[in-house]
Simulated scan of single mutants.
Amino acid sequence: MQAVVLSAGKGTRLRPLTDDKPKVLVEVDGRPILEDVFDNLLEIGADELIVVVGYLKEQIMDRYGDSYRGVPITYAHQREQLGLAHAILQVEPYIDDDFMLMLGDNVFRANLGDVVNRQQEDRADAAFLVEQVPYEEASRYGVLDTNEYGEIVEVMEKPDDPPSNLVMTGFYTFTPAIFHACHLVQQSDRGEYELPDAIDLLIQSGRTIDAIRMEGWRVDVGYPEDRDRAEDRLQSESGRIGGPQQETESPEVEQTPESTTD
């Protein structure tokens, strides 16, 4: 399956770490975050990496060239960082079938393979990891609204009054139907084309959407202190990348809001 990695952001909140490099090349535990993302994706079956680049893109392209661990890399240039839905549209010419999508600044040790398996079994138009966060934090994320049967009826980006505390993380699978939805998305009040809005269009049109509870943890490396937390977790982590975790504690996440403008 092809895998798309969104890596175009400037990482303004990570300064000074990103003064001279894109945020996906900030090192965590001795290597760039992007390599951790690549390894996760290869572990769960990615056979091509399509990397959306923007800020200081030459550093990424020069470093990895046309392959990583024998898997080919294709680059798509997002000239303006106008949101995740806009970033996805940059890869439309390169996608042949169902694909994975991961945010390039996320460190995951979670059940990513469950999402891919569900996609392959059901061929859902979108499948993604979700988790519960403290209700007061839900307005920072893409929030899911469900009915009495637990079915997703709406997805909204950073609502002022969240209908639940169930939120999306940074890993998804899609069919090419997502491109049509992204083309229809209107610019938000934040000036971005939001991925949750595109997913909500799929839901409202009756498409199949699967949400899988996250088991494990992730850190969205948005601030320098997030980098430190991710490094601490990796140094104490003994689970296998992309597979079942050995931890028995409750799922945990440390993250900052998703955005390609930073």
Rank of each mutant, 00 (worst) to 15 (best):
residue 134 P to S: 07
residue 93 P to M: 03
residue 52 V to C: 02
residue 159 P to D: 09
residue 65 G to A: 12
residue 56 L to K: 14
residue 140 R to S: 14
residue 151 E to C: 04
residue 129 L to I: 02
residue 88 I to Q: 00
residue 75 Y to R: 12
residue 98 D to Y: 07
residue 79 R to E: 14
residue 153 V to R: 08
residue 137 E to L: 07
residue 153 V to Q: 05
residue 125 D to N: 14
residue 150 G to P: 04
residue 46 A to Y: 04
residue 52 V to D: 00
residue 54 G to E: 11
residue 83 G to M: 04
residue 47 D to F: 06
residue 96 D to N: 12
residue 152 I to G: 07
residue 127 A to P: 09
residue 63 R to A: 07
residue 78 Q to G: 09
residue 108 F to P: 00
residue 145 D to M: 14
residue 151 E to K: 10
residue 62 D to R: 15
residue 130 V to H: 04
residue 99 F to A: 03
residue 68 Y to H: 12
residue 111 N to M: 05
residue 78 Q to E: 14
residue 109 R to P: 09
residue 84 L to C: 05
residue 131 E to M: 15
residue 108 F to W: 10
residue 109 R to S: 07
residue 133 V to K: 00
residue 145 D to H: 13
residue 84 L to W: 05
residue 95 I to S: 05
residue 55 Y to N: 06
residue 65 G to Q: 10
residue 45 G to H: 09
residue 154 E to H: 06
residue 145 D to T: 15
residue 111 N to V: 03
residue 123 R to F: 07
residue 94 Y to L: 14
residue 109 R to A: 09
residue 77 H to R: 13
residue 141 Y to T: 01
residue 148 E to P: 00
residue 48 E to Y: 12
residue 119 Q to F: 08
residue 66 D to I: 09
residue 83 G to P: 05
residue 48 E to A: 11
residue 48 E to N: 06
residue 82 L to F: 03
residue 127 A to E: 10
residue 156 M to T: 15
residue 75 Y to S: 05
residue 116 V to D: 00
residue 80 E to I: 10
residue 76 A to G: 02
residue 136 E to S: 09
residue 156 M to E: 14
residue 153 V to A: 02
residue 77 H to P: 08
residue 147 N to M: 07
residue 82 L to P: 05
residue 66 D to Q: 08
residue 101 L to Y: 10
residue 81 Q to V: 11
residue 105 D to G: 02
residue 61 M to F: 08
residue 87 A to M: 02
residue 78 Q to K: 13
residue 142 G to T: 02
residue 74 T to P: 03
residue 152 I to F: 12
